[in-house]
Amino acid sequence: MTLAPHAPAPPAAARTWTRVCAYADLLPERGAAALVLGRQIALFRTFDGEVFAVGNRDPFSGAYVMSRGIVGSRGAEPVVAAPMHKQVFSLVTGVCLDDPMAALPVYPVRVAGGVVEIDIATAGEVSAA
């Protein structure tokens, strides 16, 4: 897993947004898997209504299950716990807080007119941070 989670993001104007689903399709504090241009994305809507998009593959088990993890917080950080063996990942940076050597790809995401859109072009290379 080689990621540069803290690499600077390209300017917003340079992004290509792909529509994924209605914001209403996402349940508060729960994830949903999405298939975007052949890639598996885990979308999360947190308690305060924010939306995050990370890769759906659990780097520890290799299974595509991250969207089924429990959403919560560690300190001030919104996180998801891998459903298989419960490693906790930041939804903001994708980094595994229990083992910083592992991380999930993080996708820029926005809600426009009630629709969740992600920038798949920069997938896996740049974090939203």
Partner: peptide, 19 residues
């Protein structure tokens, strides 16, 4: 859960307390 954590806890919970 929301009422409980607001009144007796902090943050938004985790894979331990939520289940």
């Amino acid at each position: 859960f929301s009422q409980l954590i607001a009144e007796h806890g902090r943050g938004r919970g985790c894979d331990i307390c939520k289940p």
